[in-house]
Amino acid sequence: MNFSSKLIEDAVKAFSSLPGIGKKTALRLVLHLLQEKEEVTASFVQAIGVFRADIKQCRVCGNISDADLCTICLDKARDHSTICVVENIRDLMAIESTGLYKGAFHVLGGVISPIDGVGPEQLNIDALAKRLNHGTIKEVIMAISPTIEGETTIYYLSKLLESKVPVITQIARGVSFGGELEYADELTLARSIADRVPYSVHTPSAG
């Protein structure tokens, strides 16, 4: 793409460095800002600048937060004796948006993958172990993707934590809701059969 202005070119470059934004979309955003009043751009830039400067990581769980502690950790109504361990903040948000989980979280910041230079030391694991030292935690839920790296992380964490917490669980894996059996891959299906659960007519599993 040829630009008549170096300034526009720089702005397009900046936008298109963001994930999911190509050059064309970036140009549309830049031209849009150009059509609007200057204040619009100023407040846009300010919002981003302030957000980046002031955002914090929750001291306890690693969630993003405006203060030292995040809203989930501060919420008295939640069950703080259960910790759900997730890989990243996006996974935390996905679980939160189900509205079903009322416990606390712990964000690891990744999974163990030596090929990518990520070992246990690079992850938020020490803090998790410390949270379990008080003996108030009753259950740790591993909500980590069932990839090879995810399984490695779950196994490693479980070994590390088993003496510190009465119950370690992992989220169920199986046929997706609304999915059809014939399209499920063999591995998933085999696991679903092996880990089948009792069916109760009083509490159907649809949630």
């Binding site: 993958s113 030596p114 090929i115 230079g117 070992g119 090879i148 790296e149 490695t152």
Partner: peptide, 16 residues
């Protein structure tokens, strides 16, 4: 599956 784990294990041995 085996080879994937083996690559991770070798990467660990190399980088530790």
């Amino acid at each position: 599956g085996y080879n994937k784990l083996l690559r991770q294990r070798n990467a660990l041995l190399k980088s530790a």
